Simulated assay, not measured.
Amino acid sequence: MAETDSEEEEVEEPDFIPPPPSVVARTQRQSVSAEAFGEWNQRVIFEPPVYPKTPDQTQGLLEVTSRSFLFTSLEEKDLRVVIAAMKGPLLLEPGMRVIQEGDTGDALYVVTEGQMDCIKVIDGAELVVKTCTKGDLFGELALLYNCPRAASVQCREASVLWELDRATFNNIVMEGVQRKRNQCLSVLSSVPLFQEISRTELENIIDALKMERRPHGDVIIKQGELGDHFYIVYEGQVMASKVTQDSTDPVMMIHEAGDYFGELALILDAPRAASVVASSEPEVCLLSMDRATFKRITGEHRALHGYLEANTNRYE
């Protein structure tokens, strides 16, 4: 399930969210793999469904999916086929439950309006662990790994969803996911931050990342503001600048591909220590995770959390 920032919840978000139940342990989760075809299993021509949409609906879905890690791996023509195959709009009322934790999953969902609460059973009680808002998707992990639903998803307010079926996902999206995933593995496996992380653990982390493209000059984070995201530079460069009491001239620092930033505000629960601006032409490509995802990932992978804490002074 795609993970997003939580709005203020009635139930306080736990610092550590245990891994979802599955047939095998999370660290032993099967990798994404293509289906084998041969004499006994003939490949058939797949015809994805087509659901009519207005030009505005199509454009809105293009904008939303272009920010998702799953769909950024697709060529534009394939992405348009996937969008045409999305069923909707599905209009939901508050309290409606779309996904039940532990069930078998046969579709993923894209949120274009409203808010959907992600709910897990923790110590026998259902707790809201995050909220999906416009632009987020959920339900993809059950399709990627053929595992039970990791959490329940329930409508918090009147919302609009679009549904993509498993067959379309397997036949069109999966190949692109494998390709993009391998590219990310080749980049991140050489980053010191992930040196103590196994390949399977790193794959789990990649699944939680979102890809963002920021144009040259765009302010990614601003010194003094509250921080809700952690970033890894995937392609290009960003320029960090910090104004101190000792000098009116800002201290400058360049982050290149493989570097990370934004972790201090999440680890220390403090305002942003510096501003960061996209400095590459025409854009910089970032991998990001929100606060809730960051807490979960660093809670599950203690080596990662230890490395980040041990290097909080690197900006000095």
Score class of each variant (00 low, 15 high):
D269R: 05
R214G: 06
I220E: 03
S190A: 06
L144M: 14
D117A: 12
G95F: 02
S186T: 12
V50R: 03
C184F: 07
T72L: 05
Q30E: 04
E63A: 14
V24F: 11
V243N: 01
R302I: 15
E203W: 00
K180M: 13
L108E: 08
A278D: 07
F16Q: 10
P94M: 15
N311R: 15
A240W: 00
T4Q: 04
S189H: 15
E157D: 13
S186G: 05
S275T: 15
R156P: 01
G124N: 06
V284R: 03
R213M: 05
R97W: 09
E101Q: 15
V219D: 06
A208D: 11
M116V: 07
E212M: 11
P271A: 03
K53E: 11
G227Y: 02
G114W: 02
E39D: 11
D56N: 13
P250R: 07
F71W: 09
S275G: 08
I122K: 08
V121K: 06
A158M: 12
T72N: 11
G262K: 04
A36H: 05
D269A: 11
P55S: 12
F71Y: 09
I254W: 00
F169V: 00
T54C: 11
I122D: 08
L61D: 06
M174D: 01
I119D: 04
A107P: 03
Q42G: 01
A257M: 09
A240G: 00
R291I: 08
Q237K: 13
K134W: 01
S159Q: 07
S6N: 14
I220G: 03
L268A: 07
G258S: 09
R80K: 14
D5S: 02
V243M: 02
A265N: 02
R26V: 11
S186E: 14
W162R: 04
I122S: 07
A278C: 08
Q57T: 13
S6D: 07
P21T: 03
I45P: 00
V251H: 05
I99V: 15
G306C: 10
R179Y: 05
L286F: 05
Q115Y: 07
L108S: 01
V251E: 08
L268E: 10
I297Y: 08
F261L: 03
E140Q: 11
T27Q: 11
Y315A: 04
T58K: 14
V111L: 05
I17T: 13
L304M: 03
N204F: 10
A84F: 06
L185I: 15
F46K: 10
E140H: 06
L226F: 00
R296C: 12
G224D: 06
S68K: 10
G299S: 00
E263N: 03
S31N: 04
R272F: 07
G60V: 00
L91R: 13
V64A: 15
T133Q: 02
E12C: 08
H216C: 12
H229G: 03
A292Y: 07
S6I: 05
G217K: 14
I220T: 08
